[in-house]
């Protein structure tokens, strides 16, 4: 797993992680952090803008953990 991307994602997720739960690659973004669906989409928008990539909402249904999202970002960066 790309540690740099993971670290950036943790940083971007911080404002949404109101319970201040420790973030691990296997952390489920929605269930473990108790973040509602709109906040997940808002977080992903921040990720898109930080990396200047497009992450369509359709991808999110199969993206549960932070490690999953790292893979998505890596894949999208490779396309740019």
């Amino acid at each position: 797993m790309n540690q740099d991307i993971f670290a950036t994602l943790c940083q971007l997720l911080e404002p949404f992680n109101s319970a201040k739960i420790a973030l691990k690659p296997e952390t489920d973004i929605s269930a473990d952090l108790n973040i509602d669906s709109v906040s997940v989409m808002d977080f992903v928008m921040e990720v898109e803008d930080h990396f200047d990539i497009e992450i369509p909402l359709n991808v999110l249904s199969e993206t549960r953990s932070l490690a999953d999202l790292v893979k998505v970002v890596e894949g999208r960066l490779a396309k740019v």
């Binding site: 928008m45 990539i53 497009e54 369509p56 909402l57 359709n58």
Partner: peptide, 22 residues
């Protein structure tokens, strides 16, 4: 369809996302 969400009422954000699209 592929779904891309843009910031509320922000035409420049839509502009950016359209430019980014495949």
């Amino acid at each position: 369809a592929k779904l891309v969400r843009f910031r509320h009422n922000d035409a420049s954000d839509l502009d950016k996302r359209l430019a980014r699209s495949e």
